[in-house]
């Protein structure tokens, strides 16, 4: 139960406040605690329910009011930074933009660290494998011009540009990576986000090495490992479509195989 203090007088809250607090419903929240070294165990918390409340609010409430040792990661709280993704009732979600009412089942929520990534502690995972695979997928810019040369104009209506633009709003939250069963079964698989990044660069008129991108996504664990199950597209919180991006890479590599060029 919460006890509100009157900030001006230091006395306890008026009776009507107390009544309000004691009547407040609570949510039973199960949080996976521990690290890879200790193993994870579920711990249950009672958290007061509010009219407007996100899953991140719930985790923050536990950390601020019940157990300050609870470890989790967040930054912007508005769905831009991609830091706060967790498994909520077994499904990867951006917790800052997931309303509790949307996921509440029998007044309960289960919260766990993101799937397919090593757990550092509690709800914080090691994102290194995720970002290492961006690099492995050649997800970096290959410039067409030096800094002294004029910046070439880009036509936003061009077909390639539109294909590239469809994938550039990725916030690196790793939800697609956590949702992907191929990642779960094949540790070498680059994953949807890295491959989508490669696809946006492949379609970028300012990228000078399309062949290097196709080489990078054609190796072990490349785009051809994808089974087109589509969990990435289903769970992407930004409504992106990595599944189609990966299909695009498969088409591009096949075209090159038959002599169509990169």
């Amino acid at each position: 139960m919460l006890v509100y203090l009157n900030r001006n007088t230091g006395s306890t809250a008026p009776e009507r406040w107390k009544a309000k607090v004691t009547q407040r419903e609570t949510i039973t929240v199960t949080v996976q605690r521990g690290s890879a070294a200790t193993g994870q165990q579920a711990q249950e918390f009672q958290v007061p329910a509010y009219e407007s409340q996100t899953v991140l609010d719930v985790v923050s409430w536990i950390q601020q009011n019940t157990d300050p040792t609870l470890t989790y990661r967040f930054a912007c709280r508005v769905g831009m930074c991609g830091s706060c993704a967790m498994m909520v009732n077994g499904v990867p979600r951006w917790t800052c933009r997931t309303h509790v009412k949307k996921v509440l089942k029998d007044q309960r929520i289960d919260i766990a660290p993101l799937r397919n990534l090593p757990v550092l502690k509690d709800l914080a995972v090691d994102m290194d494998p995720f970002f290492d695979k961006w690099v492995a997928a050649e997800g970096r810019h290959h410039p067409t011009a030096g800094r002294e040369e004029p910046i070439p104009a880009i036509n936003p209506e061009a077909q390639n540009r539109q294909v590239a633009s469809a994938g550039i709003e990725c916030i690196n939250c790793s939800i697609c990576y956590a949702a992907c069963d191929t990642v779960a079964n094949d540790p070498d698989y680059l994953g949807p986000a890295a491959l989508q990044r490669a696809w946006t660069l492949y379609n970028d008129a300012k990228d000078a090495d399309r062949s290097a991108i196709l080489d990078a996504v054609s190796g072990k664990g490349g785009c051809h490992s994808c089974h087109s199950m589509g969990s990435c597209t289903t769970y992407c919180p930004n409504g992106l479509d990595p599944l189609s991006a990966i299909a695009g890479l498969k088409r591009a590599t096949t075209r090159r195989f038959f002599g169509g060029g990169a």
Binding site: S218, G219, K220, G221, G222, H224, S225, T254, F257
Partner: peptide, 12 residues
């Protein structure tokens, strides 16, 4: 034989 060649062999 790369992963891509195996992929192509299966599709073809």
């Amino acid at each position: 034989m790369t992963a891509f060649h195996l992929y192509m062999a299966q599709r073809l």
